[in-house]
Design a protein around this nucleic acid. Sequence first.
DNA 1: TTGAAAGCGCTACCAT
DNA 2: ATGGTAGCGCTTTCAA
Lengths: 345, 345
Amino acid sequence: MKKRSSTTPVKTMADIARIAGVSSSTVSRALAGSALVEDSQRDRIIKIAREGGYVINSTARNLRLQRTETLSVAIPLGHESSQPLSDPFFVEMLGYLAEEITRRGYGMFVQKISSPMDDWMYRLIAAHRSDGIIVIGQSTEHEVIEAASVSYKPLVVWGGHDRQQSYCTVGTDNVAGARAAVSHLIALGRRKIVFFGDPKLPEIRLRHDGYQRAVAQASQVEAMPTVPTHLTADAAYESMRAFASSGIAFDGVFAATDVIAMSAIRALTGAGLRVPEDVAVVGFDDIALAAHCNPALTTVRQDIQRGAEMMVDLLLRRIAGEDTPSATMAAELVVRESCGAARAS
Amino acid sequence: MKKRSSTTPVKTMADIARIAGVSSSTVSRALAGSALVEDSQRDRIIKIAREGGYVINSTARNLRLQRTETLSVAIPLGHESSQPLSDPFFVEMLGYLAEEITRRGYGMFVQKISSPMDDWMYRLIAAHRSDGIIVIGQSTEHEVIEAASVSYKPLVVWGGHDRQQSYCTVGTDNVAGARAAVSHLIALGRRKIVFFGDPKLPEIRLRHDGYQRAVAQASQVEAMPTVPTHLTADAAYESMRAFASSGIAFDGVFAATDVIAMSAIRALTGAGLRVPEDVAVVGFDDIALAAHCNPALTTVRQDIQRGAEMMVDLLLRRIAGEDTPSATMAAELVVRESCGAARAS
DNA sequence: TTGAAAGCGCTACCAT
DNA sequence: ATGGTAGCGCTTTCAA
């Protein structure tokens, strides 16, 4: 009897069944570790499968089981379709999500939503490529997400939490974080603080709220304009360049994101203004760059890694049928150099 | 006749067929835009599908067509299983890959290979979750990749290119890049240059080759040790801390990656040594951080975005049956502050 | 131009 | 403990 083990291709359960002289039902059970199969039989089948290099076909399995063991990560960039996905905040988040999703035994399916049609959410759901969806950032898509969440439960969104929203979010306490940042600037003597960022985006609107509360609560602080800049480095640079040459006097900047803050600093320096001596700058996010730029950026830290872990955990629980609440993480002001004074640690 | 369009669920082609009063074969053809279906019939079917919010079930389609319209991105971390996927280089690469893969109409399936079994590659292939595989970095897995590439063609690897390898790589000219960096240090008067990095990894071995050639070609340059540090920030910091206190005199460091370089700078500064005055440091990669840290890092630039685009393009061509050759991109020395002298631009 | 039917590879029900 | 069979939703012959 010739050895054929290496010449007989073992691609399907039917192949294994043929070699083992059993039915494919038994092979399926054996490979699933079912106690229904006789021990010796099971071991023999598993051995044949392994020696033949058999790996289960997940497409067929998924079709049968109506699930995918995959989570989708969607990144809507409606506010800024030209914003590259290489944006540091998104990319750091993506890395941690990949880490955690893999650790939980799932695959990660990444989808960038470039020029949001209003049906991207529906398509993502209906295509059945994943068991659940994580959306990074609400962008301009709050209504779409809200509508989908009514009928689609396995959905978790990174972003701002509003009283009037039914979907599950994970995010930082934007209002408190922004307020702490601006209050710190005020405490350092700044009186003319400009807000850079577009309050049309939910998270940024919350940061703007925090900014306004800090200003309203202080005395002697002048009302200053809000500059609704886009989120890209180039756009933010240009916004600041234009503002700095407008003749409006100012001594502080609260930027809605670190990318805006860093670009603003470049523009200020280019305009001959010193940071922090002439203008103090505070950002938001604490991306990896923030600690290493010059001057090191004072910013509001969001714990991206913990956020990623929470989102995956909540999503898996929702897939299991649980109805999880939203989670808000505390924001932490990280004082470095760009605000002009280090706070005692 | 009651309007039922909103109450009848339209989940499958069979549903549409029932509503339209045709067979599901016709629905399939109509939705695929087949010329075989009568025009008015086709339009009617498409209308029903759209109004019912129908989206094709990709799992079923994939099973039938034996393809997935998905590309796998595998990140083997065998050399450093504790290395987080949040490593800047990998994460930047991931962002650009997501960008380009989405742009090409594919999905991206991300898989971190944590503690490499020797069959991870085989499993990834046999599970049929994707039409092709991009591997980011050879790590310690050269043999595994080489073996798989014999029979599995839709495979592109980021990393070092060796004369003796049959798989398709995209990468930077590591030897030339390293050589330029070290020659630059030598030209600036450095004579005792230490290499930090583990030459067991293919790319780093090539960078080490470049380092050695630059040293061999110069006169008066002393032979210095190679410190086979790991790739994480913490490990590199510790390696440099230990080395700096060993009593060995040195005035230059060529770090195999920017992460190592930046950690080394922190350790050197902590040990009371000035960078670049006492020790000049050059890195490799030009991650986003490099330009923004203090002192700004002199490094060898790899064009990550272009690399990502090339990998996707080559992979899609391989999926289409083409046998593409490897591609090597030119390395570019980016002179900033950490080497102690700016070259004329 | 359309429909019937087979089948992609798997799992689970129902027998025995 | 095991096998037969149906069917997940789709595409594509083959017939008409």
